[in-house]
Amino acid sequence: MFLTLFTYFSILAFIGLSLLKAYEYARMPMHGRWELYPVPKEGDGRGHYGGSYYEEYEWWNKPRKVTHAGEIVDMLKEMLFIKNLFINQRRQWWVCYSLHLGIYVLFVWTFMLFVGAVTELSGTPVAATAGVWGSLVYYVTFLAGAAGAVLLTVGAGGMFLKRMSDSTLSRYTTPQEYFNLLFLFAVAVSGLVVWSGDPGFNYGREIMMALLTFSPIQADTALTIHIILLGAVMIYIPQTKMSHYVGKYFAFHKVLWENEPNLKNSYMEEIVRDALSYKPKTGTTWSAPHINPGSASKK
């Protein structure tokens, strides 16, 4: 029963700690504008060449033209394909994208394990030779699992080796950053070991069924190691900068693409008014003489 509880705990920890991270960033005070163009949500085609509403004469009297479609497209390009790295660092992109694509595909695999578990619990077998639905679930799970495991292994291992062998990257890589990649690599390799003994991922569906029915997970040594490593990495990721899936949202949406003007009687004006009424809680201030003449005269 330990493995079942541990798996539940690691899933909840991953979600909970990621949400906590997002909450910490979301509750940070309103900051000064720090946008950077192109801002893809700018309407009238401006998002493409980097223009903004400031190009309009008396811009504050003009209707604000925003295209959320442009923003979503740009966001998806970055999320799904790591566009900026592809354009600017093609050689590094291959391994980096392999790692990220591996993770995305493994999410699909996890979902397919869930579908497979529900299918089996409802009495329909999932196997290569089962009916249309059973074999479809089987093969999609197989393809996603195989592709995800290989891509993640190549990506994590490749990035580790690249960081070790590239003199510039190694100069800036901390021991923790090597450890992070090795940790992911270890999870991927332990998964490959387990998979090699059960190519159809039946063990995965059995784990999912155990989780859904809250019953003990039956695992041999290899699977036990894999489950513990996978759970540990899920607890670990949100506490490190590997949680950049959270930071990236804020960096783009709340900083680089946040150019909402503070117009009279707008909701932004309310936010600014609230922020301006803030009273410091700690009494800590900057100490330079031009800011705090009192501190200088006391000395």
């Binding site: 940070m28 900051h31 720090w34 900026n84 900068k241 201030t285």
Partner: peptide, 22 residues
């Protein structure tokens, strides 16, 4: 209290750099 105006952009850049050198 001392860096309200830049805390979020600063913290993001401080915390998350992957050092890819792009």
């Amino acid at each position: 209290d001392t860096n309200r105006g830049m805390l979020q952009p600063f913290m993001l850049s401080f915390e998350y750099c992957a050092k890819c050198n792009t």
